[in-house]
């Protein structure tokens, strides 16, 4: 894991995480406090990046939006990973009926485009993070299941797994001590990939007004509302656009870095 962060993308990611989680602890302006008199106010000492159409502090809103994007996406990816990997590993190891069933269920989930599934959930349950996180988690379960299943299938065919069975090792020991350590690479890559996808999906839904609900700040929504005021204050649109692009770029770069780190064609020792 240490190797993962010892790279330009790893350092940048750590920096973004620091801004998102330490930023809100700093004495910044309240992201929700309106000051209509000062709407579209330019940069000042109190508001380093200026104020939006309700006079709220842009910097503070950006920092909070960044945090919620990471929390929602990371949380959803985590839930999804736990469920998906468990199902995939069991399906790949036990085979038989449980394998057929779980893989079919995953096929069904994959038939629904993620964005539309989220919209259906928003229709039924109402929009907001409490709908968003479970839907994102559900949508990405199949990807984890498939990666875990495929990796288990590759690993379990290796002679060293048979050798471990002949030592008298139990199935649980084989799964946790022999198979899992050999498939963490692809799973980490998949995890970072799912975080990226979640960030994009979450921002898109918020852009449509179906994700994070106002007045809470989110990058997608900030972009959506600032479109109409671009002529008055371009920065209100460009700042969240830039933040979102940088976040996704860094996450993607980190994902690529992990992929190279765990490339099976590279001999991986430690």
């Amino acid at each position: 894991m240490k190797q993962a962060f010892q790279s330009p993308s790893g350092i940048l990611l750590a920096l973004i995480l620091a801004i998102a989680f330490i930023g809100p602890l700093l004495p910044l302006a309240d992201p929700l406090a309106m000051d209509v008199a000062a709407r579209f106010g330019g940069p000042s000492a109190a508001h380093p990046l200026g104020q939006d159409e309700y006079g709220r502090d842009l910097l503070s809103r950006l920092v909070h939006a960044l945090r919620s994007a990471i929390l929602i996406s990371g949380g959803a990816a985590m839930i999804s990973a736990v469920i998906g990997v468990s199902v995939g590993v069991v399906a790949g190891y036990v085979r038989g009926f449980s394998e057929a069933l779980s893989m079919r269920v995953m096929d069904v989930i994959l038939c629904f485009p993620p964005l539309l599934l989220a919209m259906l959930a928003a229709t039924l349950y109402g929009a907001g993070p409490s709908t968003l996180v479970p839907v994102l988690a559900l949508v990405f379960v199949p990807s984890f299941t498939r990666v875990a299943h495929a990796s288990v299938m590759t690993v379990r065919g290796q002679d060293y797994v048979d050798a471990t069975r002949l030592m008298g090792a139990s199935a649980t020991r084989i799964i946790f001590r022999t198979i899992l350590p050999n498939i963490v690479g692809p799973l980490f890559v998949q995890f970072s990939f799912v975080v990226v996808m979640s960030v994009i999906l979450e921002s898109g839904l918020s852009f449509l007004g179906l994700g994070v609900l106002p007045p809470q700040p989110s990058l997608g929504m900030m972009i959506g509302t600032a479109r109409s005021t671009f002529a008055q204050e371009p920065w209100l649109l460009l700042a969240p656009c830039l933040s979102l692009i940088v976040l996704v770029l860094v996450l993607n770069a980190f994902c690529d870095h992990l992929r190279q780190l765990f490339d099976p064609r590279r001999e991986s020792g430690a």
Binding site: I200, S203, G204, F207, G220, I223, G224, C241, L244, I245, V248, L249, N252, A253, D256
Partner: peptide, 11 residues
């Protein structure tokens, strides 16, 4: 390509 993929479509 890496950059293009990192910009969400609506952005």
């Amino acid at each position: 390509a890496g950059t293009a993929q990192s910009v969400p479509v609506f952005v």
